[in-house]
């Protein structure tokens, strides 16, 4: 990956390995969508030309080693605290681009307080929220986003909403807060949705660069390993089950963001 091929004069370079990714092979399970999402973020950071002033905050969860794969300054937060850590970084380095990358256990269970208050303060950071309806890293326990009836290693008879409560719709919840400028829910379940997610991630970073407020992209994702499905079946399962419960689309587009989109 280190060698960049010379582009012949009669040809145009249309696709390349993003500079914002390291050439390392990831530890993610075959079929996992984290790799796709990493790539989308890296492409956007390249496109915006901000790699050298971007600081990433990795979560506790499957993406705990994200700093191995992103070619930029990075740190690794305590479980759920990435938005607080990002707040600390951004407040003392306002010229930097700061983003968190978090799973659903990280953001919607242990770190609920931090994400809500960070969004509500309108911190100028971007959060990429990967919702795979399960705790991947610890081996498939129920997450706050696990669907009603979904079987996990800690909800063996399926999530019982009477005792475990309902799956949390974070994009809606965060979208309600005045400090949040741009909040959207997208997915990476097929090529068109991946393209839309890329656009959303770009807009989220542009919102930060324009100083408009907090931005978050929730991404409906899969965990084929812990769901016990093949990668393809997992994509289909997410389309059939997750998307109806977690509707795709924007939950917050502030007027200032709309103006930015029109520009």
């Amino acid at each position: 990956m280190d060698t960049i091929l010379e582009v012949p004069p009669d040809m145009e370079l249309v696709y390349a390995y993003p500079e914002s990714l390291t050439p390392k092979v990831t530890h993610y399970c075959p079929g996992c969508t984290h790799g796709v999402i990493h790539r989308l973020i890296a492409e956007v950071i390249d496109e915006l030309g901000v790699r050298e002033r971007t600081i990433g905050v990795a979560p506790v969860g499957c993406a705990v080693l994200a700093y191995e794969y992103f070619n930029m300054d990075f740190c690794e937060a305590a479980h759920g605290r990435a938005p607080a850590m990002a707040t600390g970084i951004k407040r003392v380095s306002p010229d930097k681009v700061v983003f968190t990358y978090q799973g659903d256990g990280d953001l919607a269970a242990i770190g609920t307080s931090e994400i809500i208050h960070t969004a509500n303060r309108g911190e100028l950071i971007t959060t990429i929220f990967v919702n795979n309806a399960i705790y991947g890293m610890t081996g498939g326990q129920m997450a706050p986003t696990t669907l009603p009836g979904q079987v996990t290693t800690s909800s063996p008879r399926g999530r019982d909403v009477e005792t475990a409560g309902w799956p949390m719709k974070m994009a809606e919840l965060i979208g309600m807060l005045p400090g949040a400028a741009y909040v959207t829910r997208q997915s990476v379940l097929d090529v068109p949705s991946i393209r839309r997610t890329r656009k959303a991630i770009k807009l989220a970073f542009q919102v930060q660069l324009a100083g408009l407020g907090f931005s978050m992209v929730e991404i409906i994702s899969t965990c084929n390993t812990n769901w016990g499905l093949s990668p393809l079946d997992a994509l289909e399962w997410a389309k059939q089950n997750m998307v109806p419960y977690y509707p795709l689309g924007d939950t917050k587009v502030a007027d200032s963001v709309r103006a930015l989109m029109e520009r």
Binding site: R81, A84, G88, V92, E114, H117
Partner: peptide
């Protein structure tokens, strides 16, 4: 300079952690 009243001590210390990682006296 920066003053921020955090939502909890948990958030405070992790903000401190972040600012320290960024190289600020915090």
């Amino acid at each position: 300079r920066v003053f921020l009243q955090a939502e909890s001590e948990v958030a405070s210390i992790n903000m401190v952690y972040g600012a320290a990682c960024a190289g600020a006296r915090v």
